[in-house]
Structure formats: C-alpha cells, structure tokens
Write a protein that binds this DNA or RNA. Structure first.
Lengths: 234, 234
DNA sequence: AATAATTAGTGTCAAATAAACATTTATTTT
DNA sequence: AAAATAAATGTTTATTTGACACTAATTATT
C-alpha cells in the first residue's frame, strides 16, 4: 500500500569534506572522479544513498570505499539541493565533514586510492557546487570548534603546543599570541604533558602532550554550563 | 541521457520546527496531520520537495501553505533518514527551524489554519521521529544562539529586558542574574532604549527597547573576531 | 493616607580573566 | 664561543565577571 506516490525523480547523494592537518596548514582530501559526468575532474568524495541505507551509514561507506578510512570523526553539515546543481539529473546532496589525523592514515591513502591532499587555501577547480560545500563545511567547523574542542580530532595522539596553535590559526585564519594561547590551553586541563620532546620541528624541541580524554569528553558534551557568561557576546 | 540511474525510491521531505516565544516561555507550532499515514495526529509542519524545487524553497512554501507565515527566519538543521523512520515509504527528511515572533502572526494563525502552539516543555505525542527532530533543532538553536544574537528573531519590534532575559532562560533552561545580564546586554550596544514603557507585565513597568540593526548585522555576520579569547573554553 | 508588595533598574566591589609585553631556556649552526 | 632559532615561562595592567545590595516606580492593601 502506497500512501504518497510511487517514486521520486530526486536522487539522494552524499558528499564528504575531509579535513586534515599536516602540522602546518589545514588540508582537504579530494579525488579524481572516475565516472560521468565530469569524469577525471577533481571533486569531493561522493556517492549515492542506497534505498536501505541511512545517510550516516552511506557517508561512512563512501569514505571507506574511496579512501580506506574508517572510524573517523564525521558530522552532518548542510544539504545542497538547487534543482540544477548537477547538469543531467536532479541530485540532492547531504554533506558531511570529517576530521582526520593525516599522519595516522598516510599509508592507507598513498597505496590504493586516487585521493590527494590539497591546502584549503589552494585547491584545484572542483565540479558543480563543491566549492560552496567546502565553504559551508569550513564555516560549520569554525562554529563547532568555537564551542567544543573538536579540533583535537585532527591531531595525532601526541602533539605539541605549537602544533595546536598552528591548527587554530589555520582554522580561523588568525594569528595567535602563542604565550597567552599556551597559558590558556594548559589551564584548561585538556592536555597532559609527556616527557618526550618533538625534535623534528625546532632546535630546542617542543614537549609532546596527549589529550586528557576525561576532560575532553566532558567538554565535548556540554557547552551549557559556560553559556551565561558570553551568551550575549561582547 | 541518464548518467546515474533512472529513479530513486527515496522520497525527499521537509519538516519545520517552528519556535515561538510568548513573552514567558518557548513554544513550538504543531499541526494536525490531514493525510495518511497517521492522519489526525500531531506532527511538525511537513511536506515533500518537488522535483523542480530547492529544499529552502520547499521549506518556505510548506510553511506558507500550512500556516500563512512568510518572511520568517529559517535555517537548515539536520537530516533524518533512517530507512524505517516512516512505516510505508522510504522518506528522508530535511529539517529546518524557524524563529518567529508569535505576536506578529497571532491573527494569521488563529483564523485559517489548524496549527497550535505548545510549550516546548510539554507538547503532545508526535508521529515518527519528530521528537528527535525537535531535540536536534533545540540543540542547534542553542549552539547558534551561543555565538550569534539570533534569539532576537523571536521578539517583537519592541521588547523589554525582562523579556529577553526570560527568552534566554527558556532557550538554555537556566536562571540568569538579571542584573548582570542586563549590564552585559546594554554594554553590547545591541539594543536601543525607547521612551515608552511596557505596563502590561509589571507594576513599575519596563522600558521598551528596539534592536540596533547595524550592530545586529555586524554581530550576526562574524564571530571570528571574538574567537581568540574563548576558542579553548574555560 | 500610609504601608506593604512587586518588579525594574542602578550601583559596588572583589576575584578572575584576558591582553600586551619581556625574559629565560635548550638546542643547533656558524 | 657566539649567534640564531624557537620553546617555555613570567609580569603587569586593564577588562570582565559574578555575587550581592540598594533604590525607584507603581499597584494593592489596610
């Protein structure tokens, strides 16, 4: 028994904006499309939602298929559905953004997949409205990261304070006073100092830190307690 | 020429979570469904995206058709698409939340439409996953309102400080110190004091204020400048 | 007519936080 | 041994917050 109507001529797709951080700048992962239309052009990771599949599941499946990446932080962002956003069919696409630690998955990516990292500042021309999708994802990332410490999802297990600073600077396109930044970060209790130092990136070497997962989870769950103070801005 | 496949068995729908503020508490606008399945049960405003229609346009059309409301603040929030979220068809629904000033539209609503306001704290049982949709919209409203002064969209042209305070208390389920709240709000430059007083709600009467639209637009556009200070929480 | 009750609006002050800036430390290069 | 580099810690002042007390305007009560 059909209540509505038999079929839709709208196809439902997924596109993934995959953010990575190489220790210096923010990057996105793009792929060379291997199907028509626009074959061989650069695009976001995409695919269709199957009829028995939840959009979240589709997003994870597509990411896995195209890049081999699994268990990454992923979040729904906006839907793009202008009637003529694709030339030949009516496709409405749900966007997801993913945050991944590029170090961890370097080997996976290089081997089997035609995916490539590009700086967020300078990536090739993309098909359809994928530029807008990236812009919208970036906006969402900024908004979310202003309230929650999710940017740590982009960092490896061990990271240095200069790295986090560079990450925040990249995400918000700002320059931070590293001294004040560092003090604030340390006082949050969010990170735990290790004995080991990173000697790769500087002469003196910077101490590694790891995430205090207990405090991280607490902070990522509730922003409410903080609200009264700045719910109205300055 | 078809590149993908002929048709999808996924139907694309819209549901609108409409928030209003009656001066005391937050409310949502619900409607008695007049079609199957689940006819005559309470639900969110919903409908289908037409094949030549952008989702945003569909959301506004549906809102207009079901309530007569036009030119309201509306924003995309999450997509619900579990395969079995509706019993008879595969329907994926894009949710929008709207913020409206209940005063302004009181007359429109009462006349022609079977829509009714319910307190966000206590509304009737809803169909499908509409409860989750409301919860998710509420979460998004809180998040957005923590960074931008969008809650003013819920207030009439003229409003009093006690009203705004009650609104923030409603949205975040908190109690505010009205004195500190008021000071902060005034120092933001966001509101302009009028000569007139609201004598309805208190003996002494509270001064009306109006929004400083210049500052409002500035604040609603960019939160970036504010970020460095609390990008890492307290 | 005086007093109590209610809610609005202003004021005070100490503690916490943020912003701006200076110095010291560890290491490598010359 | 000195210079260069980047990390880490320290200092000082201004601003913001949070907690609290008071005054002001009006209506209801006696």
């Amino acid at each position: 028994m059909e209540y509505y109507k038999k079929d839709s001529d709208i196809l439902l797709a997924i596109d993934c904006i995959i953010f990575g951080f190489n220790g210096e700048s923010l990057e996105i992962l793009l792929i060379k499309r291997d199907f028509e239309p626009e074959r061989n052009k650069w695009s976001l990771m995409g695919g269709f939602v199957q009829s028995d599949e939840a959009p979240e599941a589709a997003a994870h499946r597509i990411l896995k298929q195209l890049t081999g990446l699994e268990n990454v932080y992923m979040e729904q962002c906006s839907v793009f559905g202008e009637p003529n956003r694709e030339p030949n069919d009516r496709v409405v696409s749900i966007c997801y953004f993913a945050l991944i630690d590029t170090q961890k998955y370097k080997h996976i990516l290089s081997d089997n997949y035609e995916a490539k990292w590009f700086p967020l500042q300078k990536y090739p021309k993309l098909i359809f409205d994928h530029d807008q999708m990236i812009a919208s994802a970036q906006y969402r990332l900024r908004m979310k990261a202003a309230l929650y410490p999710i940017l740590f999802e982009l960092l490896p297990e061990k990271f240095t304070i200069p790295q986090i600073a560079a990450l925040y600077e990249g995400v918000y396109s700002i320059e931070l006073d590293k001294r004040n930044f560092s003090r604030k970060l340390l006082s949050s209790g969010l990170i735990i100092k290790l004995q080991e130092k990173d000697k790769e990136n500087s002469k003196k070497g910077a101490y590694y830190f790891k995430l205090n997962t207990a405090i991280y989870k607490e902070k990522i769950m509730s922003f409410l307690r903080y609200l009264p103070s700045w719910s109205l801005e300055t």
